[in-house]
Amino acid sequence: MKVITIESSAYRTMLEQIAEIAGYVREAKEERRRKEAETKDRLLNTAQAAELLNVSTRTLQRMRDDHRIEYVIVRGTCRYRLSEV
């Protein structure tokens, strides 16, 4: 077994850098979870979905009729999950 020695100030500096990196990783994970939660359940109306897909609303209706895109009906209007679009 090898023993590696370093000065205590260098060791403290290294620990601070590791803690800083760990903080960035935690922030990135939290940001990703927050974005997934926002987009996972978000429902789009027909105009929004058509704009995201870069198609007309009529084409979107055809896609819906052909079962090429899933949708839900909320209070009589079609809504599309962002995760599906």
Rank of each mutant, 00 (worst) to 15 (best):
V3D: 10
V3L: 12
V3R: 15
V3P: 04
V3G: 07
I4Y: 11
T5F: 05
T5L: 09
I6V: 04
S8V: 12
S9E: 14
Y11V: 01
M14V: 06
L15H: 11
E16F: 07
I18D: 11
A22E: 15
A22L: 12
A22S: 13
A22D: 15
Y24W: 11
A28I: 09
K29T: 08
E30L: 09
E30W: 03
R32L: 09
R32K: 15
R33Y: 11
R33N: 14
R34L: 06
K35Y: 09
K35N: 09
E36N: 14
E36G: 06
A37E: 15
K40C: 06
K40L: 09
K40T: 10
R42G: 04
L43P: 01
L44K: 11
N45Q: 00
T46N: 00
T46S: 02
A47L: 03
Q48K: 11
A49V: 00
A49Y: 01
A50D: 01
E51L: 01
E51K: 05
E51I: 02
L52M: 05
L53G: 02
L53N: 01
N54C: 08
N54K: 15
N54F: 06
N54Y: 07
N54S: 14
S56K: 06
T57I: 08
R58M: 13
R58K: 15
M63C: 03
H67K: 03
H67L: 01
H67P: 00
R68W: 02
I69R: 00
E70K: 10
I73P: 00
R75S: 10
R75I: 05
G76W: 04
R79F: 04
R79E: 02
Y80R: 11
L82S: 06
L82I: 08
V85M: 03
